[in-house]
């Protein structure tokens, strides 16, 4: 296959891996094997993380919001270690201490998922600053939801990135909702690009399912950021299911959901491949089966991973060369002995 013929299958494969991973997280939850219920799945939102993930370079860094499994997989995250983290197990990326909302892999340039809406945004400004200072050619991308568009910290960060001409991209995954609040009830001005442009950033608004085009366009924004022109990308999509595992979305209609779920970036991409004869049905089926096996293995890995040792409550608070915090038990026993 030529380069143009491998692009779409590659993007499709990443989206399908994200989707299948998220489905398995849902199954893990039903099996009662996840740590808690605060699992935010990105089913329906795969396009943005996939095309940005492909447009970034190996050395680039990023932060994500609480719905960040997608970009992590797109950047090479290991589904086994991710799943184990979501299960709160020892083999997870963060030893099960962080869970779904605090997953990270510094080696892959993942500077952290965040449970605070907007919390991870200024991190990329700092990452851009050090990249420029150290001449490392790293672009740093912040992924966040439409909810974070209403947090002041975003505007402080965009201004700094613009002022200091940093290699930074702000990427808003606009799934139309912040929990049960529709975007219309949260944003006075919904044209987010206008807000970013007013800070002097290059902007891009992706609002269709053509992922090849979205890839090319977002690569332009990231390439410009590498030349110290910071950018902003908004990707419009739809959160197919509830906010977290317990949410049945009573605040929106079934008709809306049925209609919006038709805008499925994955079926769109597979139809494109068939239509343009890039792949036939059998070939697509093979990809899907392979992914299914990969994600089943990830789920089994998580289930079989051991629980963590109680000592881990105390590790990682401070640098490992420093003493561990004294446990309450030790303090009390000392007083009572």
């Amino acid at each position: 296959m030529t380069q143009s013929n491998t692009l779409l299958p590659n993007l499709y494969t990443t989206m399908k891996r994200i989707r299948t991973f998220e489905e398995r997280v849902g199954e893990l939850f039903i099996k009662g094997e996840t740590a808690g219920t605060m699992l935010h799945l990105s089913i329906g939102e795969e396009l943005g993380p996939t095309c940005l993930g492909a447009a970034m370079q190996k050395q680039d860094t990023f932060t994500t919001h609480h719905r960040g499994h997608g970009i992590f997989i797109a950047r090479g995250g290991d589904p086994k270690k991710m799943m184990a983290e979501i299960a709160g197990k020892k083999d997870g990326y963060c030893k099960g201490k962080g869970g779904s909302m605090h997953i990270a892999d510094m080696k892959l340039g993942h500077l952290g998922a965040n449970a605070i809406v907007g919390g991870g945004i200024p991190t990329v400004v700092g990452a851009g600053l050090s990249s420029k200072y150290l001449e490392e050619d790293k672009v740093s991308v912040a992924f966040f939801g439409d909810g974070a568009m209403q947090q002041g910290i975003l505007y402080e960060s965009m201004n700094m990135a613009s002022l200091w001409k940093l290699p930074v991209v702000f990427c808003c995954i606009n799934n139309q909702y912040g929990m049960g609040t529709k975007i219309d009830n949260a944003a006075g001005l919904k044209d987010f690009s206008k807000r970013a442009a007013s800070f002097g950033l290059n902007t891009l608004h992706i609002d269709d399912l053509d992922i090849e085009n979205a890839y090319v366009k977002s690569k332009e924004i990231i390439d410009k950021a590498r030349k110290f022109e910071p950018g902003f990308i908004e990707v419009e999509c739809y959160r197919f299911f509830g906010h977290a595992r317990m949410d049945k979305s009573p605040y929106r209609s079934e008709e809306e959901e049925i209609k919006m779920r038709k805008s499925d970036p994955i079926s769109y991409a597979s139809n494109q491949m068939l239509k343009n004869k890039i792949m036939n049905e059998d070939e697509i089926k093979k990809i899907n089966e392979k992914i299914s096996i990969e994600m089943d293995e990830a789920m089994d890995f998580a289930i079989n991973s051991p629980l963590n040792n109680q000592k881990e409550i105390f590790t990682d608070v401070y640098d490992e060369r420093e003493p561990l915090p004294i446990s309450v038990e030790e303090r009390i026993n000392k007083i009572l002995s």
């Binding site: 740590a35 201490k97 962080g98 869970g99 605090h102 963590n308 881990e312 309450v328 009572l336």
Partner: peptide, 26 residues
């Protein structure tokens, strides 16, 4: 007759893993 005892959560952030979280607090 005895020193006053403070029994609290640990001087650490709260872990996610349920088996750790359970013992993180009294």
């Amino acid at each position: 007759l005895k020193p006053v005892i403070r029994y609290t959560a640990e001087d650490t952030p709260a872990p996610v893993a349920p088996n750790l979280e359970e013992n993180y607090i009294p």
